[in-house]
């Protein structure tokens, strides 16, 4: 993918170092299916006020993977500007989605169309799909039954299926068992900006899907509003974050894209560092020995 030297230079520094005793200079790559990324931020290409702002935001985020939707071509005015002039398929791995599909059959058709387009572009993203099968237009929550059906079909057709899911641990397990390449629970409803609402369920999903299989990629998809949300998700142990609205609809999308980039890095580093346990009481940072003051004797 990154054949051009300038691109290599551009992306350098986004992967977080993960030094261990055996591999002091190991780079912490994000592996999902057949793909490897230095960046753990997958960015959507929807809802920007202009293609120019989108392009700049993708660059500021240092993302290497961009989601994209499949829609009917306009029959009467197809001469408009094409998004591919702003999301270079030579530079980014595209992740086509099935957004807007409400049943398994339509989602499967949509996935096949996305693959056909990406094959024509010779983009490596032709082998995967972000599978969305929605159950309700107000919450945009997935329909787990249809989602599972579509996953089974697409897996049997050789797709690497990235499943947009709710935060239900049992559904997540069923999707993994069905062969999903990654399960991608929502932090909160799509576009809501509410962040990571149900940390407990998400932690259960992570524990469950990664038990005995620590490299199984689990991605938080949707709901984040700002950089701290992204950091929280990464600190929980998610492998990556997929987001769109929080950047596209920020007052300054390009700046927010940078913030998200650093949020992902900070959260990942913190996760790898092993945080201190939480304690109800204080623990002094300065030595207790040699203090010139007497300690008040109020507590026993």
């Amino acid at each position: 993918m990154l054949t051009d030297q300038s691109q290599k230079t551009e992306f350098r520094g986004d992967a977080v170092g993960n030094p261990t005793a055996e591999k002091p200079n190991a780079i912490d790559l994000f592996r999902v299916g057949n793909h490897k990324f230095q960046s753990r931020l997958i960015l959507g290409s929807g809802k920007y006020d202009s293609f120019e702002i989108m392009k700049e935001s993708l660059e500021a985020a240092s993302t290497q993977c961009v989601t994209i939707a499949v829609r009917r071509e306009r029959l009467h005015d197809s001469s408009g500007r094409n998004i591919l002039d702003f999301v270079d398929p030579e530079r980014y791995i595209l992740l086509p989605n099935t957004a807007g599909c409400y049943d398994a059959d339509t989602a499967v058709r949509c996935a096949r169309m996305g693959r056909e387009i990406l094959k024509g572009l010779e983009n490596p993203g032709a082998d995967w799909v972000k599978l969305e099968v929605l159950g309700d237009s107000r919450t945009l929550l997935p329909d787990p039954i249809e989602l599972l059906k579509a996953t089974e079909t697409l897996v049997s057709e050789g797709f690497q299926v990235m499943c947009y899911s709710s935060d239900d641990p049992i559904v997540a397990r069923r999707l993994k068992d069905a062969g999903a390449t990654s399960v991608m629970p929502a932090g909160s409803p799509i576009g809501s900006g509410l962040g990571v609402i149900n940390q407990n369920s998400l932690q259960i999903i992570l524990d469950d899907l990664k038990r005995g299989d620590p490299d199984y990629p689990v991605i938080i998809d949707a709901g984040v509003g700002t950089a701290s949300d992204v950091a929280v998700a990464m600190e929980l142990g998610f492998d990556a974050v997929l987001l769109n609205t929080a950047v596209a609809k920020a007052e300054d999308p390009v700046k927010m894209a940078r913030a998200m980039r650093f949020g992902v890095q900070a959260g990942r580093l913190a996760y790898l560092s092993g945080r201190i346990p939480k304690s109800r009481y204080a623990s002094a940072s300065s030595p207790e020995v040699g203090v010139i003051s007497k300690r008040p004797n109020r507590s026993k």
Binding site: A69, I83, L84, L94, G114, I117
Partner: peptide
């Protein structure tokens, strides 16, 4: 027939 293309999406 359905003729589809790529558009921005999340």
């Amino acid at each position: 027939l359905e003729i589809v293309t790529l558009v921005g999406g999340g």
